[in-house]
């Protein structure tokens, strides 16, 4: 069975149906890219997995644990709070707007969650934080506040912060969309590096070249449905659905 299994997810906001019937299977170490036009439900789908939205219908299993399944009455039934939180901690999420904590330094941003959530001792987290900040190239910025960093630096801190919880899965929601074009590279390289280390990742992105290069599987989403999915060469070079073809045309 696959590592992440999302089956027949349905979700609407006050009558506005955003996810109609979306399913996705992800194996351990796999990198999935989700592309698609604005408003197609990509973020919503990712946020359902990250437990920032609740689904109306469908099943989500992660590593054999059930987060939510459709009950007898056809409505989604969530697992108990303990299971929800256990799964939450195993997933890291990176947002378009970084969402760093502005009142904490870079280092404090990294330390706080392992300390508060996992109850780790500072002495045990420090070496991890150092390794992660060095990895994203920001160890010498550790005592700066986020407001003093560039967008690309902020996003790399956000990635390091998520990694400090040692997640099994990383979710990215347009991690480079808020960045100046010349700063996207440094963030994409960091994500690329994670891919090489076999991190399981789902990446919503508008960077087609990057999606093609980093993903094992690409999903094209429109109107709350997955219109096409497959290996990047297939989807990008030989798109089957006219919707995909039109979208890729428009992205050129």
């Amino acid at each position: 069975m696959s590592f992440i299994s999302m089956q027949h997810i349905e979700k609407s906001f006050k009558g506005n149906v955003v996810l109609k019937d979306v399913s996705l299977e992800v194996n351990k170490g796999e990198v999935i890219s989700i592309i698609g036009p604005s408003g197609s439900g990509k973020s919503t789908f990712l946020r359902c997995l990250g437990q920032l939205e609740t689904i109306d219908k469908g099943t989500i299993m992660v590593d054999g644990l059930c987060l939510v399944k459709t009950g007898a009455d056809g409505k989604a039934v969530y697992a108990d709070k303990k299971t929800q939180r256990a799964l939450q901690i195993r997933m890291g999420m990176v947002f378009q707007q970084f969402n760093l904590f502005p009142h904490m330094t870079v280092l404090e941003n990294i330390l706080i969650a392992p300390k508060m959530v996992k109850g780790m001792k500072e002495a045990d987290i420090l070496p991890i934080a150092e390794r992660l900040l060095k990895k994203v190239g920001l160890w010498d910025k550790r005592d700066e506040y986020p407001s003093r960093l560039s967008g690309g630096q902020k996003q790399r801190v956000a990635i390091a912060r998520a990694l400090a919880m040692n997640p099994d899965i990383m979710l990215f929601d347009e991690p480079t969309s808020a960045l100046d074009p010349e700063l996207t590279g440094e963030v994409l390289r960091t994500i690329q590096q994670l891919a090489e280390e076999n991190m399981t990742m789902i990446i919503v992105t508008h960077e087609m070249a990057f999606a093609k290069q980093v993903a094992d599987k690409v999903l094209f989403m429109a109107d709350g449905l997955i219109q096409e999915e497959g290996r990047p060469e297939e989807v990008f070079d030989h798109p089957q659905s006219p919707r995909t073809q039109a979208f890729l045309q428009s992205m050129l």
Partner: peptide, 18 residues
């Protein structure tokens, strides 16, 4: 306080109180 601050904390596993 932007909504993103709550979301950033939630995905790191913070409880509401934390």
């Amino acid at each position: 306080i932007p909504k993103g601050q709550y979301e950033g904390a939630k995905v790191l596993g913070f409880t509401y109180f934390q």
